[in-house]
């Protein structure tokens, strides 16, 4: 199968959906001729023209709300944040406006908008261009959150997100945008709410998000050398969450490590951990371990790595569980 970069997978998903439905359009900062900061929209402006792909001024709240309004009118906006960190300036639009409008209107006005936001560390870009932001949005009724780790998942899930009739926050990881992966030429979609077993195992379940999936894979290799069999699960979408898949794995292994790049406190791991404790407590043979970033505004440059979870912290946690 051919291999393409994550950023190209994002571009293709947008291109295919724009071809499929003339109501789909793309806005954001530098999405037009520049094709987005990380190339996620390369060529779309040339292909679809300035009525379907156009730049917005530096006004995050304004243009996400613009998307909300256009969506109420029957359009299907894809709104790009240049960096996910900037989404705080559009917090109201992403959390209070888009997701709540349908209910507030008694089911009459939906907001089928996809907000795409590149997040995460890896560039040493310091505290305001590096955070994983998913946990900020866990508490808005009406919102859906997608967080893929591979080009294949990214493309299939983004297509579904654009077709979904609700507001979807689609978080793409900056450090993964340049990685390559198998993506078929033929069209496909992936439903929201289906997690994925990345690696089969029997001794411990590692639930990992985005870049941490790759750290978990390396950790699992190392653990295998010592005879420890780790299962890795990538939930792929946080809302809806595939609780069933997680439950089946927990029943099998009885031990859980949850790892994500966002700070540990109040992170998505807390939610998964609570879901497991509530529903699968009897299957647990050890306490759940959560791993996340240190409670530090990510520093500039090289020292960034000292704050983030990695293969070693995962290996260490698993060993602790198996002690």
């Amino acid at each position: 199968m051919r291999e393409i970069a994550f950023s190209q997978a994002i571009m293709e998903a947008q291109m295919e959906e724009m071809q499929r439905d003339s109501n789909v359009f793309l806005i954001g900062e530098d999405v037009a001729k520049m094709g987005s900061a990380f190339g996620q929209s390369a060529g779309l402006y040339e292909k679809f023209g300035s009525k379907r792909v156009f730049n917005m001024p530096v006004a995050e709240s304004g243009y996400v709300n613009f998307g909300v309004g256009a969506a109420m009118a029957g359009k299907r906006p894809i709104v790009e944040m240049q960096f996910a960190d900037f989404i705080v300036l559009a917090f109201d639009a992403v959390g209070n406006q888009g997701p709540k409008q349908r209910y507030m209107s008694g089911g009459e006005l939906s907001v089928p908008m996809t907000v795409r936001a590149p997040q995460g560390a890896g560039f040493g870009a310091a505290a305001q261009h590096s955070q994983c932001v998913e946990a900020w949005f866990m508490n808005f009724p009406g919102l859906k959150i997608v967080m893929p780790s591979t080009p294949y998942d990214g493309k299939g899930l983004l297509k579904t997100a654009i077709r979904d009739n609700d507001t979807v926050l689609f978080l793409e990881h900056k450090a993964l945008l340049s990685i390559k992966g198998e993506v078929p030429e033929e069209e496909y979609t992936i439903p929201l709410g289906e997690g994925k077993i990345v690696r089969d195992g029997t001794d411990v379940t590692i639930i990992a998000l985005q870049a941490q999936v790759y750290q978990a894979l390396e950790a699992a290799e190392e653990l295998a050398k010592e005879g420890i069999s780790a299962e890795i699960i990538d939930p792929r979408t946080l809302i809806p969450l595939d609780k069933k898949l997680i439950g089946e794995s927990v029943k099998k292994t009885g031990r859980v490590v949850i790892v994500h790049e966002a700070p540990k406190r109040g992170g998505f791991g807390s939610e998964i951990s609570a879901v497991i404790a509530e529903n699968f407590f009897d299957s647990l043979r050890a306490p759940i371990i959560r791993i996340g970033a240190a409670n530090i505004p990510l520093p500039f440059g090289m020292p960034e790595q000292y704050c983030l979870p990695n293969k070693n912290s995962i290996v260490q946690s698993v060993k602790e569980l198996l002690k």
Partner: peptide, 11 residues
């Protein structure tokens, strides 16, 4: 918040 929303609708 309704102001940019109205602009989106108008557009």
């Amino acid at each position: 918040a309704g102001i940019p929303e109205a602009v989106g609708y108008a557009w």
